[in-house]
Design a protein around this nucleic acid. Structure first.
Lengths: 253, 253
DNA sequence: CGACAATTTGATCTGTCTCAACTATGGTGG
DNA sequence: CCACCATAGTTGAGACAGATCAAATTGTCG
């Protein structure tokens, strides 16, 4: 579980992600490795799954960036979560027939589609995996709750800082970010839709974060200059991510 | 499944709620009926579960009203969901050790505590119940996503109307609301914390809803006067609740 | 190099917040 | 049954965070 290895085989990404939140046995890992996957490249700006779809497969992110979103009457968009390699952003389609939201590729992504049947049979056979997947879906819910708090009760600068903190920690614990720097291919408009702000105001808020010396951005590469201060500004406490202590500790560096 | 029966035995409340979203066999219902429960009355204003707790039981709402909430730095509170009889508001503690939020009794409530072990053993033994509970927790997540949209991208009047719509439908499908009237023991301050608004502005927004003839309130009893219009104003589409068609249809009345 | 997308800036507007006072309501004890 | 008190609801005035509109600048990529 080196944090600096090169590109991983597809199944290893899933295993690594699940291990940050749940303990897996060798048997569990083997079972996960045997999951059939159909990989596909999807260009940025295209839906991976559309609202109203009735998927028969769940998708695993392999590379790139995606988000869940909804559009309200009036055309305003709200982003509800951001997804990185190792995430299973539509595990929900396993039990819920119709997609109630869309999943959008924010950059070119590679995804692996895993048939629901294969996941179900694994869940039925393997208690360890059943528990890990249930746990993961409960953590997803926890992340949504924190997102509610973010858009409901925080100021602009707090919201943006908090999103940065969450993305950084999630990437870091699975070995996909440097110790301070990380790649966040989010446009300001996307960040606005994630935080419930306007793109103009996100722009000004980012400038404020830069002026305060908390982050540095060049293009889409963002660097965290003052991690403790960013957490303070963003009112960030990673407890809601329910990451196992051993993995969270690596992040404290 | 009469909608007008009197008080139900505790297990029946749980079964009725699960049946609105998942199909249960007789065997499933029997298994649920055998769950051990320790019931308890909790006065309004008291926490049922506190942030930081490590519960060994999950709680089932039997009567009254509760909510999930978090307090952010600065003392501002955000309510993330509202819970009615039949709900299992802390199913998550089954897999997540530490509570990342509190659950508060908004009125005097009766709750039943069910040991995690009993639920786990049911999940391990009964595929139907496993599937129903997973489905329920995925629906919880879906409701959180809609809540994000509500506080992130809707105006004050839309937010309040939407919360009314959601509460009404959820109560109605499980037979706990009249065809138009329903009991919502929420103070304006609580409604404010649910919608990310100030209590003063909620007051004015409610007046606007009354003036428009959409609702009528007297004390804590709220009546919906124009259900179609309220759904329109609240940009409400019940799809995200994933209620089974047969139960949703009863609500259309 | 050209063209389109993203960022930045300025000016103005407005929905919602804050603060503060006043009123209604409902529950309680005398 | 009423007087009292606490809690919740209502109103007004003023302030501000963030939205909107529009234009200019910069960046990106074929």
């Amino acid at each position: 579980m080196s944090l600096t290895s090169g590109p991983l085989p597809d199944h290893a990404l899933l295993i690594r992600q699940l291990e940050t939140v749940a303990e897996l046995s060798t048997r569990d890992r083997d079972a996960l490795s045997s999951l059939p996957m159909r990989t596909k490249a999807i260009p940025g700006g295209r839906d991976i799954v559309r609202e109203g779809d009735r998927p028969t497969e769940s998708c695993l992110m392999l590379s790139g960036l995606a988000c869940r979103y909804k559009v309200v009457g009036g055309g305003r968009r709200q982003i509800m979560s951001i997804h990185f390699p190792g995430d299973l952003p539509d595990l929900q389609s396993l039990e819920l027939d119709v997609m109630d939201h869309g999943i959008l590729a924010l950059s070119e992504v590679r995804v692996a589609f895993i048939p629901h049947d294969a996941i179900r049979s694994l869940i039925d056979r393997e208690p360890g995996i059943r528990s890990a997947l249930l746990k993961q879906s409960l953590i997803d819910a926890s992340m949504f709750r924190e997102w509610i708090v973010n858009v409901g009760r925080r100021t602009a600068i707090e919201r943006v800082a908090h999103v940065f903190c969450e993305c950084f920690v999630r990437l870091r614990v699975r070995g996909l970010a440097g110790s301070h720097s990380f790649q966040l291919l989010l446009t300001q408009a996307e960040l606005a839709d994630a935080t419930g702000l306007s793109n103009v105001h996100v722009n000004r808020t980012l400038q404020e974060l830069r002026r305060a010396g908390l982050v540095r951005s060049s293009g889409k590469r963002h660097e965290i200059l003052d991690w403790p201060a960013l957490q303070t500004v963003g009112d960030f406490n990673p407890a809601y991510l329910h990451i196992r202590p051993a993995y969270l500790a690596a992040n404290a560096a």
